[in-house]
Design a binder for these strands. Structure first.
Lengths: 179, 179
DNA sequence: ACCAACATGTAAGAAGTTACATGATTTA
DNA sequence: TAAATCATGTAACTTCTTACATGTTGGT
């Protein structure tokens, strides 16, 4: 499916970036719904350059250090835009390790299950806090179609996801505690 | 991380199964949070057998057809139980192709975005209906710690997930329509 | 007789992770 | 001057998907 290809093209649609920038985007940015390591990104950037979908400009940082600042080409833009509207009906299958463990929870001691659930609740509450921190920056809903709206709606979705997940975890926990 | 290994061990904890059964479990069962093709499952079953974590018994179906009915060994049970309680703090990163597309929505025509969102809403509403069909079978909450509870809580979580996702999609759609 | 479902495997390749490898720049 | 971060790459390996390959069984 070459999803990484399209993620990179999409990021370069927003602005020119280096491989390092793209890597950071995955590790600390708003992009919490896809990931890739630099070892996957650099070869893909090479490939996309060879395919003519992106180009780079060498920029000097400091005295000698060369950065490759990549931009999307017209051909890349066309390819990317086609991908966006393609296959709108694909079933979004998602792996979920914790749900998997809950499916096997009958093999655990009750105290272990409860401990596991509590750990997850902590994790998701912390994640929710981090997202709310970002969300606070929006004093109004950006205009749909703008780059700000894309950011906004994705962060909003992430918070809603954490809310639902925490609700489910609390339900799991209470089922065990109420017993 | 050998997650497939543990998924298989977990399924065999529930009951003995053939490779075919395990494949079906991923394609049509309650297990909507992990997946694997038979081409990955059969080699893994071989490997687990060699590792002594599972064994099989050859069963004849009909006249000649041989099935391999796999069971988990004591060693497998110990390994599996350790895995369950290991690393309770792992961040559950999840890829989400549609959220990715929404993050890039500024590159689409508004009508294309709306069309894409409507498609997703349909998809998730249908999935929700299918899950509710399964959920109807529970007239009461099974006892925590039982196999039935594991099934129940996972289906419940899946429905909650669809609910949140549909809410988010409606929010996306309405942002574009209200404009 | 035919077809859907049962049943098991291998091969080739794509996607993703971990480890190896190197060097420059900035900030404390 | 040491450490953190910036910056780019390759190699080996695991994981996952698609395609190839074969044969049986049960229902109509």
């Amino acid at each position: 499916m070459r999803t990484l290809k399209y993620v990179i093209l999409g990021l370069l649609m927003k602005k020119p970036m280096t491989g390092y920038d793209i890597t950071k985007e995955f590790n600390s940015g708003v992009v919490e719904f896809w990931s890739a390591k630099h070892s996957q990104i650099y070869p893909e950037l090479k490939r996309l350059t060879k395919e003519g979908l992106i180009t780079f400009e060498t920029v000097i940082s400091g005295e000698v250090m060369e950065k490759k600042l990549y931009s999307i080409t017209e051909e890349g833009i066309q390819d990317f835009k086609q991908w966006l509207i393609l296959d709108p009906e694909v079933e979004p299958f998602q792996k979920d390790l914790f749900r998997l463990k809950m499916y096997f929870s009958e093999s655990m001691n009750k105290s272990d299950v409860i401990n596991l659930i509590k750990c997850q609740i902590d994790l998701h509450k912390r994640k929710r806090e981090r997202l709310l921190e970002t969300f606070k920056n929006y004093s109004f809903v950006p205009k749909p179609g703008s780059q700000e709206f894309s950011d906004y709606i994705v962060v909003k979705g992430a918070i809603m996801r954490e809310d639902y997940y925490i609700d489910w975890l609390e339900l799991c926990k209470n089922s065990y505690l109420d017993e």
